[in-house]
Amino acid sequence: MANRNFAMSDAAEAACTEEEQPLRPGRPVADLRDDMLQEDAQFRAAWDVLEVRRRIVTTLVKLRRDAKLTQKELARRAKWNPTFVSRLESFPPHGQKVSIPSIQTILTYAAACNSELGLVFGRPEGEHVHINETVALGKSDPFAKVVNALDDTDLSIDADILKVERGPV
């Protein structure tokens, strides 16, 4: 990426040659947030309301990062205005209602990242999860087969290992 640099004065150039140690960063912002969540019930409520949007946005941004796309590049692929992508990945103060991206929007976003979207419906049963229904929403047959293979399957995690106890594959 090309940069346009402002010219440095001789004094600044000389100073730059000296090793300048930056300050050590302070505490994580997440710690400050956790303190506030403990102390402020209204903030806790506002934070909790954004939980679903936060999970969706985090997943979308991870997809975009993995596809090595900027917001502008993703917008071009999805035929969206870049402003839309920026808003999609942001958190407008919700007031009474939180906006959640539609499935069509998530599908288009995923496709722009060369990814497919599927929905998995499961019923937790103790330590197991029974997958009742799945649906693949993209155009890839292999992806649809893999997602559909989870139908009517019992899954569990044991020592960080996914166990498939029953499945139609």
Binding site: R33, F43, R54, P92
Partner: peptide, 13 residues
């Protein structure tokens, strides 16, 4: 509280 939740959500992402 709402603006703070938005702010911290962006940081969390």
């Amino acid at each position: 509280p709402e603006v703070r939740a938005s702010f911290f959500s962006a940081i969390a992402v």
